[in-house]
Simulated assay, not measured.
Amino acid sequence: MTLRALTALLALALLPAAFVAQAQSGALPMPLESEDPEKPLEIIADQTWTGPEIQIQSKDMRGLGTLEFKHDASKGPVTLVIDYAATRPDPDADSEALIDIGIECYDTPQPCKIPVNLGVVSIRSAYMGESVANVGASPQAVWVGREGHSYTFADGAMVAVSLDLQDRVNLEPKAIRARLYYGNRNDDALPGQATRFGILTKIALAVGLLFALFLWWMRRG
């Protein structure tokens, strides 16, 4: 095996790890994957808040905003999923943040009836993972959690979903994304699972493979 061939192998070996690192640099918003690849999710509302605006809102516990859509009951329930990226002042202590979910329906004879337990989203450090999010103009190391609820509404109802930041412990929010969609999400692909440690492990394995190939080539010579 020539040195040129070894160089090519190096590029191929490092390519997957480099791609993962690049993908993680814009890890928020995290991708949503359908349970069935042949039936992609239909995104009906999508909004992201980041940078100084979210820090002011989290300090004053102000509302993030409202997502609106016209419900099509033939497509099934609507799911709200929230990706929450934050730093943890004390990485060894438990962390939690609450987001109130307000829902109003228009153009329907019956008001929305939402169970109390679906009116709040709880982000907990036990279900968060390390990642990298673009905050402002540069990437930042954060913890990311994903939580959501599914809702059923009357066909044709105009629905407004509002989000209000509430109490939090040991979490400083840096970016939040909310999406509404029809379809079934693949719950196996949770945010934060591809950690920086995992990326470094992939790179180390690739370098180790190259080194082993180099030793094999030297012995042949």
Results as ranks from 00 to 15, higher is better:
M1C: 08
T2E: 12
L6D: 02
A11T: 06
A11G: 10
A13N: 08
L15K: 03
P16G: 01
F19R: 15
G26E: 12
L28Q: 04
D36Y: 03
P37W: 09
E38L: 14
K39Q: 15
P40W: 06
L41N: 03
I44G: 00
A45I: 05
A45G: 04
P52D: 11
E53W: 11
I56P: 02
K59W: 14
R62Q: 13
L67H: 04
K70C: 12
A73E: 06
A73I: 04
S74C: 07
P77I: 02
L80S: 01
I82G: 05
R88T: 11
P89Y: 07
P89G: 08
P91S: 09
S95W: 02
A97H: 01
C105N: 09
P109R: 08
P111V: 09
K113H: 14
K113F: 09
V116Y: 03
V116H: 06
V120L: 11
I123G: 01
I123D: 03
A126G: 12
M128F: 06
S131K: 04
S138I: 14
V144H: 05
G145C: 01
E147Y: 07
E147L: 06
G148Q: 07
Y151H: 09
Y151P: 05
A157M: 08
L163G: 10
D164Y: 09
Q166K: 13
D167E: 11
R168Y: 02
P173A: 04
K174G: 06
A175V: 09
Y181D: 08
Y182N: 04
N184A: 12
D187N: 12
D187C: 08
L190E: 11
P191D: 04
P191T: 04
G192D: 00
G192W: 00
R196F: 07
G198R: 03
I199Y: 06
T201G: 10
K202Y: 14
A204W: 07
L215D: 04
R219Q: 08
R219G: 01
